[in-house]
Write a protein that binds this DNA or RNA. Sequence first.
RNA 1: GAUUCCGUAGCUCAGCUGGUAGAGCAAUACACUUUUAAUGUAUGGGCCCUGGGUUCGAAUCCCAGCGGGAUCACCA
Length: 514
Amino acid sequence: MLQELSEQEELRRTKLAELIKLGINPYPAEEFKVNVTAHDIKENYERDKLNYKDIRFAGRLMSVRDMGKAAFAVLQDSTERMQIYIRRDDICPNEDDKVLYDIVWKKLVDLGDIIGIEGYVFTTKTGEISIHATSFKILTKALKPLPVVKTDADGNAFDEVTDPEFRYRQRYVDLIINPKVKKTFEQRTRIMNTIRTFLNDGGALEVDTPVLQSIPGGATARPFLTHHNALDIPLYLRIANELYLKRLIVGGFDWVYEFSRNFRNEGMDRTHNPEFTILEFYVAYRDYYWMMNTTETLLEKIATDLHGKTDVTVGDKTISFAAPFKRITIFDAIKENTGIDVSKMNEEELRAVCKTLHLEIDETMGKAKLIDTIFGEKCEGNYIQPTFITDYPVEMSPLTKKHRTEEGLVERFELMINGKEIANAYSELNDPIDQRERFEEQAALMERGDDEAMFIDYDFLRALEYGMPPTAGIGIGIDRLCMLMCNQPSIQDVLLFPTMRPEAKLTLNEETHS
RNA sequence: GAUUCCGUAGCUCAGCUGGUAGAGCAAUACACUUUUAAUGUAUGGGCCCUGGGUUCGAAUCCCAGCGGGAUCACCA
């Protein structure tokens, strides 16, 4: 790369050359067999001191307090930080040869380098469990200086790196220097593990279905379009996996699930990323009431596994995930929030209601969309505690079974938490003739100018004609669930590598390079 | 996509109504064999995001662009 190096970067390259001149490989190939972690030492040393007399430990050098012929330093391994104590006369027992300490340790080792040590655990005068190093080895030389974040005894961080652009583009650095960030992503994985265990224990089968689809079905959204060269056909990145999971229910699996990475070519903000993860699962012989019970049980378990309690702090609110959750129909929710009963209204009356509520509407909107608008603008944001909103109008739910008793409605619920939709579920429509008609209504909406209407998937209709058992299905937004559970206000903080515009500097260098 | 704020040393940030750059940490040198935001002394380090414009003179004012954040629109 033609990129100019900073003073510190030049210096580190010089040090690298000096190490090599001394016969030290800054990037050794052989394994360094670690036999302990920082976490293990801090947890167990006090009651099992004999076991920590002969240890091998490795980590990244985070700070050094040099005192002449001895030094304290902090190494960070994958678990946490550990203080080490290193003395010249331990490292260099030979009186005539102090090079390893005076030159290598003091001059050529930098913050950010990865080193391995041998030694024993002890407790310092001030009471900190530390490792007394008897030897050390450079395992990886770092050529870029690491931003240094200092933390005092009370845990206050100084000069913490907060620049979002730096943190998201160079997440690897963010993870090194901001332990809280690392913790969030460990929590994300724990949440997914809890879900997997819950579903597997219930008898579910985890499956993989196509990401490349010729018909982007199962949801309404603008897809990403790509092209397959060998077949010479357009392919879409999936916007949902719903129709494939239902094909598997047809195929005879009674409970399937998938953490589906979905792609939607739409706006980005702090709750939307072009690629995001939805957990979908489908269960034969169940209905949406069963699904509500299961969902609240699952969420309660996630909260308690993660926090040891059902109350979770989210911003300035406390959200209780203790089951059962409140249940209310969408019409009652609108009545509760606006005082207006829209349940018997036709399209014209609904338009009038929207006008009195000062909501922006246009001519392409049908009855369902008008109701959805009223709910979205006037109700959604008010449901902070977990609430199931149920029984939606049939027009806005083309894949949902009609309600068993209520004319014009479907057996569907959305789970609202902190004013946002977290999950969407229904008793799945399994009547192939009804499904065909619903698809055709969607096609008509598309004609009318609704660019969010669904494509018709004829293979899915064929599958339904073979017979899908009565089935309950749900999609849970994993990223948003993690935002709640980890108290993160932005989706970018629960995605390791959020989508970003490419860095101009780097692409330029790439061009000059080739 | 619209509005708005931001972009200065490796990092966190100052830099007023225009007079060609500062601090802390990090780095370098020296001292120090139980420190912990270690300490003390000294030193080096800048395409002030990019390109135009105004001006005798721009980090600073104006315009355009690039990148990021926030809010709104669309959506999950």
